[in-house]
């Protein structure tokens, strides 16, 4: 889970989830705490979904 997807690709990660921003990949300080946690949960669920998906090559899970 990282914000700079080209770096994740260049270092060889196989399942990549694009995130929010460099200093807060899994958060957004402009949101209220409940909405921020919901955003984080959504991203982690995407990661769990990626882990449950078979891939044959480097894959960026950018969809919703």
């Amino acid at each position: 889970m990282a914000t700079i997807v080209p770096i994740s690709l260049s270092v060889g990660a196989n399942r990549i989830i694009p995130t929010v921003s460099i200093p807060h990949p899994l958060g957004n300080p402009t949101l209220d705490p409940a909405a921020e946690k919901q955003l984080r949960r959504h991203l982690v669920e995407k990661a769990l979904n990626a882990l449950q998906t078979d891939v044959t090559e480097q894959t960026v899970f950018s969809g919703e």
């Binding site: 200093p23 958060g27 300080p29 946690k37 984080r40 949960r41 769990l48």
Partner: peptide, 29 residues
């Protein structure tokens, strides 16, 4: 290498422990 303000306020923004604990409690993982 990045502005530490947001991670120091709430480190879950980098390491999502809170959400994974919830998912553990709910039996998702």
């Amino acid at each position: 290498g990045y502005d530490q303000t947001y991670a120091n306020q709430d480190a879950d923004r980098v390491l999502p422990v809170d959400v994974l604990r919830d998912l553990e409690k709910e039996g998702v993982i």
